[in-house]
Write a protein that binds this DNA or RNA. Structure first.
Lengths: 84, 84
DNA sequence: AGTAAAAGTGCATTATATTGCGCTTTCACT
DNA sequence: AGTGAAAGCGCAATATAATGCACTTTTACT
């Protein structure tokens, strides 16, 4: 039972030092899913997922969320305080 | 000096009970920016931002991040623990 | 009420994300 | 080495996000 944790997405779709593609792939295999499984479960085209996992693409929020849902992840917006 | 907080994006692009469009608009006016200002600062088309704020659209991760950057927000992925 | 700035919208165009198909390559296991 | 599953990729088609332009509507202030 380990706690939830966060991954920051930077401007290039990377997360900390990991790429979004790596996160998706790691999480997918952690869940013992093939690309085909995940694509089907998420309702995303297989070709789309494949492209994403090799680092190509700029997914729509919808696509990202469909995948995140199946992968047990959640897309968040962190709102920072405003310094005055 | 109030703490940072999080907003959850659901499958329809809503955040908790607020829509993504509302979050963007509120944050923008909080920063005293016009749509034109924000669009220019974020490097996003004015038409695109306008559409987003009226709840139309399924922005790409890139577009979302460009806006978030200017608005002092950050896109995150929350990774949930896996129950066994 | 009059005015200017800001915001909303219809239309057309361009860019690109999404998709399926077929084929090749890689991986994992015997 | 042989084999089947999984993953990668080129191509073409479709869907739609992103954009600019022009115009209308709303908002805010005097």
């Amino acid at each position: 039972m380990y706690p939830e944790y966060f991954l920051y997405l930077n401007q290039k779709g990377n997360i900390m030092h990991q790429k979004l593609s790596e996160i998706i792939r790691e999480r997918r295999s952690m869940l013992h899913l093939t690309q085909e499984d995940l694509a089907a479960l998420a309702g995303v085209g297989l070709r789309t997922l494949k492209a994403l996992e090799v680092g190509k693409g700029n997914p729509s929020l919808d696509t990202l969320q469909r995948l995140a849902e199946v992968l047990g992840m959640e897309v968040r917006l962190e709102v920072k305080r405003i310094d005055r």
